[in-house]
Design a protein around this nucleic acid. Sequence first.
DNA 1: CGGATTTACTAAAGCGATCTAGTAGAACGT
DNA 2: ACGTTCTACTAGATCGCTTTAGTAAATCCG
Lengths: 343, 343
Amino acid sequence: MTSGKRVTIADIARMAGVSPGAVSFALNGRPGVSDETRQRILAIVEENHWQPSSAARALVGARANTVGFALARPARSLGSEAFFTDLIAGIESRLSESKVSLQLRLVADIAEEMEVHRQWRSSNQVDGIILIDPRDDDPRSDRIATLDARAVLIGSKPSPEGAVPSVWIADDEVAETLFSYLAALGHTRIAYVAGPAELEHTRLRAEVLDRMAADGVSGEVITTDFSPARASAVTRSLLSARLRPTAIVYDNDVMAVAGLRVAQEMGRAVPRDVSIASFDDSVIAGLINPSITAMTRDTFELGEQAATLLLQQIVAGINLPSAQGPTPTLTARESTAPPTAAP
Amino acid sequence: MTSGKRVTIADIARMAGVSPGAVSFALNGRPGVSDETRQRILAIVEENHWQPSSAARALVGARANTVGFALARPARSLGSEAFFTDLIAGIESRLSESKVSLQLRLVADIAEEMEVHRQWRSSNQVDGIILIDPRDDDPRSDRIATLDARAVLIGSKPSPEGAVPSVWIADDEVAETLFSYLAALGHTRIAYVAGPAELEHTRLRAEVLDRMAADGVSGEVITTDFSPARASAVTRSLLSARLRPTAIVYDNDVMAVAGLRVAQEMGRAVPRDVSIASFDDSVIAGLINPSITAMTRDTFELGEQAATLLLQQIVAGINLPSAQGPTPTLTARESTAPPTAAP
DNA sequence: CGGATTTACTAAAGCGATCTAGTAGAACGT
DNA sequence: ACGTTCTACTAGATCGCTTTAGTAAATCCG
């Protein structure tokens, strides 16, 4: 077990009494070596813990065994959302099964994101790219096409033909499920404390609520910046109104917890006086008192699915069709109940 | 602007009318080219958006401009802790200033983690490595030394001479602060619901509590697997005992929330009948009702500091001394109060 | 049985940088 | 004027792997 120099394919070749080329054939399952020789080579490789140099592989244009994810979000804000950790954990867990690494990069904006993509591709650093936060007229899709890179978009609808394939979650169905549940409980005045208006899912969810006017549900949508402070303020004013809502739905769990507290401080019992629900679940949503009804989406699995699709595309060398991600389900908990008769 | 082939250092050389070697000298600020030529080359590089191939660089043993972080934690559990997202965001935000990427890998255990380290180093994929979750007799430190890799350990004390330098948070001081605060409120029976026994900080914190026996505080330490279910069970049994604690401290916010709920279900008012505190803060800890007293640490900055130290070491080519990370501070909230006289 | 094909290899040319050794030509010193 | 030292380069080896072209031996076929 001599230490020192790293063992290269040439060393293996020498030990097996063949040429480096033969070893390469054997390793990559290419014809040109007899089964017997292949076995012998593989055994020697095993024995000497040989690992291909990814740098050398990348240089000759082979697989880099790395996938890139450039994230254009303010760094400080990432932590409050379990979403990203879960997503990344899901992606990684799938990737590491295939011994593929994740290259993570935080960037300031979409322009820098695309620049990073270019660099990655031009030096063959990554085999595929993950995109998130789709926008209208997203310039990234075209860019990816010119780079001839495999990619997946994590979004809320299937991608059009020719664009970057997506793994998507049907946000309108999610909204349908939650709002209908509340309507079925008997709620007719529902408030929706949403995120920023420019996000696709905010619009989709609000539209669903609007449509429920047909069923006698009067909805009210208030957009926020996702901050708990805004959520508290909004809740306070909602519950102070003459005709106050009997149910409030928040875009995420942090806002829901903030709203819950305000309700309690104002002497409104939850769920007796007002029902509360969230579009995003978390461990804490189930532990708090009262526990909060939420749409549970399996973000981890979403990550896994995105990674799976990307890996398949990399192997196939072509784009594959978009795939629907895990469907969020309703987790009914203590914070929702039928409204009390007397308003 | 002809597309197609990627522009290499040879193309630049041709355009500048010099040899590839000269271009390399110019790019890396090495002597051997006149200032005039250097400017000309740099201009051409700029103009043609040339980027060095990281693969080629890695192959000749130059900087890879990548830092590796292999995480040996169950993937599914990562999301519940904001800690990792914050930490990674902090690390990344510092790295990306220097155009360095983060290579993230989830591994099953320490053995696989070390294996990944070996691969990374042997193929020159990363310039430095980040370690976390130090344990007693950590085998990783020696391994890193034999790999001759730069690394930082995110830990709870300065590393001994020769070991991997750490960015550390004085966990004993943290524990001292929180336990003393409770003692000062008048608590004499304090329970500490900790994480796994093999983690360094668990031991450090427990030791602090033990030492307080001198001041008339009787402490009890219960180790857990960090799961809310265990935290609930432990809390239930603590509060059912004849001589129950007047204050319970949890290792993280999720467990604290779980414990809080159990206390309320058992009819113990918080903080009147029992005080609750956490060693880990989060947005929700401050929003919940009652809000939870916690030690607030700036995880983002911890990540930044770790990245900074690592980058400095990479540039210097040697190990640098350990550095103390941001000091956590006590955030007193509603969940703690003096114990009521009658037990 | 002899030419064509197949099999199992080897030799060597890249991939795109870095880096060492070598070489003109200019400047310098005496 | 001639050797020495700089300066500003160039040529070419090198990193570890893949891959193409080439070759000897084995196999096939009529």
